[in-house]
Design a protein around this nucleic acid. Structure first.
Lengths: 338, 338
DNA sequence: AAATTTTACGATATCGTTTTCGTTATTTTT
DNA sequence: AAAAATAACGAAAACGATATCGTAAAATTT
């Protein structure tokens, strides 16, 4: 049962290929009776159009790329799921790529997409991404981009984020209200707008409560897990030991837990921990983790919806737009007052 | 900077399209000097071949589909990552689809893939999948399939699994050795081979240790989270309350934790819990969860490697092969002797 | 020097669709 | 009844890349 094409159908029906094509696309140029015959045979033989022929002809691939830093993170998975939901509604397919937070890999992926393999791109930047030519190139090649979470302000397009400043503020204030005085911030990357906003919110809360900002409590983490473990260990055993940690991303909070287990620091007695996180098991951790949870699924849905809106119009320039959703603070044991 | 094609290059160089094509593919028919000129111009203008034209011509899309029941599960994510790693090496792209464990959705996805959109498929079946025509159709249409984890014995192809019988046995014996006498098994689906094998291993261990099999301790769970919560709650509050639970999949173990928290059952004092799981946070849970961890990343890599081996040979019939990897038992607090 | 091979390239068909433009009949309008 | 419009279809040109033929000139062999 090798694949059947329009020519096969045409031959069997003794009509032309073009008529078959039109019949299947329900053109008014074809008589109703002929259409019926065509449709019947197509169904019987299980005809299904070759997608790539159509893509070539129409210059549209009904495919988008979704580029995320990693997959082993529920936030991105939920966002992808959200985007996939919308994609299915629009009969689009999603190619998933991961950068492993590596700028070079990100550039390599985008350059592979320059050739029209996808109609559009949804991306959350790698933490090491420090310039944006690979992205402007893509847009200039006619491939629209929508950002989510790890966005890039420098590029004019739609960007879906959460209220990171307010959330950073809220998280920090929550720690302060529960008695913390020396709050450390675990930063993931100075390149990322979201990290900066979260940090600014953290500073602002400290200011409001007349706590002096101590830059030594801002720990710069990276993409290297072992280095991060060392940084956190040093922070927690060094002279500027904090009484609370605000982790900008989930991975750093989990490392904090691991380090605390290892060196015998008790959460929340000795150290309170709060983190941005979409972890399903936050409530089951020891102790349960107080989180700021982003509406990841919704973010993915919105990103895809906006992209498809422009693709339908065949416009590659997306109007600049900042869509900001609200994150939610869920208070659990890791920040309990003692 | 609209897209540039072979014709554009040919015009600028005053040679034919076919020569340009051959030059770029490093054909011996083209003089070295000409090749250099062509390559230089291609580089300068950022030429990148239209993938779909090549797909149409070659009847190969350099794309495979990966179908998984869900993405919010570290096992599948790791498997996907493994497959992606291999795909990148082979210059292949991966289309990711999720069935949400829904048989109908799985059928819908496979039927969409019948038209040559992908060259091959890697799949882990939905738990509700009860017949396999949609899969044999795919193979008959010339699209090879490789299974991983949730496989289908009825179809002749390559299947990557883990030693589920042995692992089920080991898990159960571990519970017995730590003093459990009434061990419940949380089953995810009777359709799934892996579930049956895990259960058989469970039975075998009970037999070995002269513990009578009690079918009332085998709890059939489903795809409905609320129903599962109720089932587990009934199990734990009913007349046949077990002193240990062996969860066939991670999701059920987490629900068990949640239910125990809610109704005040203490793990491991009142109930020991062991589960198949690739959860990163297993060690950080309260209590830390004893797990049987499958080599998911490796499974994905192997599945992709086998598939690409056949795709390179342009063979759509994959020789039947059962590749069985070993899972690993990691003992933690949830099964501690008391 | 004639015959043969090699080199380096071009013309063209092909992959499977879609779409524009003809081209007949047939129907409607004047 | 002549003119115009419409209905229903077919031929053919794209879309962009590739591979199979040719073919002319140059190089080699006899």
């Amino acid at each position: 049962m090798s694949k059947i094409n329009l020519k096969d159908l045409a031959k069997k029906l003794n009509i032309s290929v073009s008529s078959v094509s039109k019949a299947l696309r329900d053109s008014h140029e074809i008589a109703e009776e002929t259409k019926k015959k065509v449709r019947a045979l197509a169904l019987e033989l299980g005809y299904s159009p070759n997608p790539y022929a159509g893509f070539l002809r129409n210059q549209k691939s009904k495919t988008i790329a979704l580029i995320a830093p990693e997959l082993t993170n529920n936030f991105f998975i939920q966002a992808i799921s959200g985007a996939e939901t919308i994609a299915q509604e629009h009969d689009y397919h999603i190619l998933v790529y991961t950068t492993n937070d590596d700028f070079e890999k990100e550039k390599s992926i985008t350059s592979h997409l320059m050739n029209g393999r996808v109609d559009g791109v949804i991306i959350s930047l790698a933490s090491s991404t420090s310039s944006y030519n690979h992205l402007t190139d893509l847009i200039e090649a006619g491939i629209p981009i929508v950002f989510f979470d790890r966005i890039c302000h420098e590029i004019e397009t739609a960007k879906i984020t959460t209220n990171d400043f307010a959330s950073g503020f809220m998280a920090t204030e929550h720690l302060i209200n529960n008695g913390s005085k020396k709050i450390a911030y675990l930063s993931i990357s100075e390149n990322l707008s979201i990290d900066n906003k979260r940090k600014q919110g953290y500073f602002e809360a400290l200011n409001k409560h007349d706590i002096k900002i101590d830059e030594r409590l801002v720990t710069k983490c990276s993409n290297d897990e072992n280095k991060n473990i060392n940084s956190i260990k040093q922070l927690l055993t060094g002279p500027y030991k904090p009484d609370a940690i605000f982790a900008s991303i989930e991975k750093l909070a989990l490392l904090t837990y691991t380090v605390c287990n290892e060196i015998g620091i008790k959460i929340p007695q000795d150290l309170k921990v709060i983190s941005f996180s979409n972890l399903r098991t936050a409530a089951l951790l020891n102790p349960s983790l107080t989180t700021i949870t982003q509406p990841a699924f919704e973010m993915g849905k919105i990103a895809a919806t906006i992209l498809f809106k422009y693709l339908a119009k065949r416009r590659s320039v997306i109007i600049n737009e900042n869509i900001i959703l609200k994150s939610e603070l869920t208070i659990r044991d890791s920040t309990r007052k003692y």
